[in-house]
Simulated scan of single mutants.
Amino acid sequence: MIMKRREFLAAAAAGAGTVALAAPAVAQETFRWRMANLYPRGVSFGIAYEAFTKKVEAMTGGRLVIENVYDGEGVGATEVFSAVKSGLVEMGSPYMALHAGELPAGVVELGLPGGPERFDQIYTMISKGGWGEILKETYGSQGMVHIGDIMQPGVYLLTKKPINSLADLAGMKLRAPGAYGSHMRELGVAPVTMAFAEVYTSLATGVIDGCASSNLVDYRDGKWYEQAKYLYPLPLSGAQTSPIIVNKAAWDTLPADLQAALLTAQVDHCWEHVGLSIMTVGEAVEEMKAGGAEFTAAPSEEDRQKWREAAEKVWQEYAAADPASKRLVEAQGSFLAKIGA
Rank of each mutant, 00 (worst) to 15 (best):
P191H: 01
G106D: 09
E302C: 02
P94W: 05
T193K: 06
N68V: 15
G92E: 03
S300V: 09
Y123S: 12
R327K: 15
F119Y: 15
E7H: 04
G62R: 13
M1Q: 10
K229W: 00
S214C: 02
S277W: 07
K160S: 01
S127A: 14
L157R: 01
A239K: 10
G222N: 13
D268I: 00
F81D: 07
M172I: 05
R5T: 12
L234T: 08
M172H: 03
A77V: 04
Y232Q: 05
P104I: 02
V89Q: 02
K248W: 05
P162N: 02
R118Q: 14
R6P: 12
P153F: 07
D268V: 00
A11C: 01
A58N: 11
R308T: 11
S300P: 15
D168C: 07
A11L: 14
T201Y: 02
F52G: 07
F335C: 10
S242K: 05
A51N: 12
E317A: 12
A293P: 14
G111L: 04
S93L: 02
K136N: 05
K289R: 14
D303E: 09
L166Y: 07
S44P: 01
G291F: 10
W131G: 06
E312Q: 12
A51P: 00
V274L: 04
I208E: 07
G206W: 13
A100C: 04
K313H: 12
T280V: 00
Y318N: 04
N247I: 07
M194P: 08
P323E: 15
L21S: 09
R327D: 10
M144Y: 11
A190F: 09
G46T: 10
S127R: 12
E309F: 00
A250F: 08
A212P: 05
T296C: 07
T201M: 04
M91V: 02
V75Q: 03
E302P: 06
A265D: 13
P177R: 01
E79M: 03
L112M: 09
T30Y: 03
S141Y: 02
M194K: 02
K160M: 03
A290Q: 14
R304Y: 04
V80E: 04
A10I: 10
A265W: 11
K160G: 00
E286L: 11
E302T: 13
K223N: 13
M144K: 00
H146S: 13
K160F: 01
E29G: 03
W307P: 04
V281T: 15
A27E: 13
R175N: 15
H99A: 01
E330V: 12
A197D: 14
G130F: 10
S165P: 05
G181R: 03
Q266E: 14
L98R: 04
P116T: 08
A58S: 15
M194Q: 06
L64I: 06
L98D: 08
L263P: 03
E109R: 00
E312S: 14
V26G: 00
L38V: 15
G115Y: 01
V89I: 05
E117C: 06
H183W: 11
A51Q: 10
M288I: 13
L258R: 14
N164Q: 04
V155R: 02
T124N: 08
L64E: 04
D322S: 01
E186F: 07
S214K: 01
M59W: 12
A261R: 07
G171E: 01
A284Y: 15
A297Q: 07
A324V: 08
P299K: 00
T30K: 15
P40C: 11
A310P: 06
